Computed example of a mutant assay.
Amino acid sequence: MGNSHHDPVVQCRPAWNAGKTVGAKRPLTQKQIWAVRFFLDREGRVRDRALLDLALDSKLRGCDLVKTKIGDLVSGTDIRTRAIVIQQKTGKPVQFELTADVRASLLAWFEHRGGTIHDYAFPSRVDHAGHLSTRQYARLVDEWVEAVGLRRAEYGTHSLRRTKASMIYKATGNLRAIQILLGHTKIENTVRYLGVDIEDALPLAERTEI
């Protein structure tokens, strides 16, 4: 049963989002990405560098990223240039590219980590047969952004999912391509996810002459 807004107790109670940043987390800029990479390389955090790079290239939700297995990313002795995973939320496959720098950081991590194609790419440190938890992934992202002077309230795991998608959208304006890359079932979800509004649409229209 709900509470009346006339209830003095409710009136004195702070809003659930008081003092919090609500809404979509910001994507990272190219400069911020390299700042985080520099921090991780300087600290010798091979696993975290590979995790960051895979998150950026794959554009996967955190729940799918942490469940990625070595076999999803490796073919023979090489890192795949393209990979496919089944999304937990939709049950549908999504394909993503693995660029040269990302393949290099993944290879460095797998050589350090060892394991078989059936093992999780990023195992739990508590249960070695399990995978890194989404909560721990979120804690790591908080740590990374704070290390380069960003506010953790404004960035999170969805920042990594949105980063490359936002860059591709700004370069091309192709919402359908972004929908496919993010694995969204509806284009409306992609529009909301990217925060597309009239300020984005008008410059695209202005660049097109008939």
Rank of each mutant, 00 (worst) to 15 (best):
D78N: 07
P27A: 12
T68V: 15
T172S: 13
A55V: 06
E97I: 02
C63N: 06
R42C: 11
D7V: 13
T68D: 05
R80D: 01
T81W: 04
D7P: 07
L107D: 09
E154P: 00
H118G: 08
Q95M: 07
N189Y: 02
G195W: 02
F39A: 11
G130C: 06
A18S: 15
N17D: 15
A121P: 10
A138K: 05
G19H: 07
N17G: 12
I79Y: 06
K186W: 08
T68R: 10
K59R: 13
T21F: 14
H128I: 09
I168E: 01
D7T: 11
A50M: 02
I33Q: 12
V85C: 06
R162Q: 02
G62L: 06
R47Q: 12
K164L: 13
K20D: 05
A138C: 06
N3P: 00
I180S: 08
I180K: 10
R37E: 15
L51D: 01
T157V: 12
W144L: 10
G173F: 07
Y193L: 05
A55L: 04
R45Y: 04
R61V: 07
L194F: 05
K92T: 11
D78T: 05
A147W: 04
C12S: 15
A129V: 05
S166E: 03
D64Q: 08
A121F: 11
A24Q: 14
R42L: 14
G44W: 11
G115E: 11
P8T: 07
F38V: 07
V126Q: 11
I180W: 02
Q95F: 00
T208M: 13
R192G: 13
D200P: 11
S166T: 10
I187K: 06
G76F: 10
E199K: 15
N174G: 03
Q88D: 11
L182V: 08
G130Q: 11
V66R: 10
S166K: 06
Y137D: 04
H6M: 14
R47H: 11
L73T: 13
A108L: 07
K67L: 13
F39N: 14
E143N: 10
S75W: 08
G91V: 10
G44Q: 12
P27M: 13
A108P: 07
L202V: 14
D119Q: 04
K69G: 03
H5L: 05
V102N: 08
R82P: 00
C12D: 13
P203W: 05
I210P: 08
I70D: 12
F96E: 00
H6G: 01
I210V: 14
C12K: 15
S166G: 01
A55R: 05
L73W: 04
G183E: 03
A171F: 01
R192P: 05
M167T: 01
V148I: 15
G130F: 03
A55M: 06
N174W: 05
L107G: 00
K59T: 03
L60Q: 04
R162P: 01
G2N: 08
V145M: 01
G115F: 07
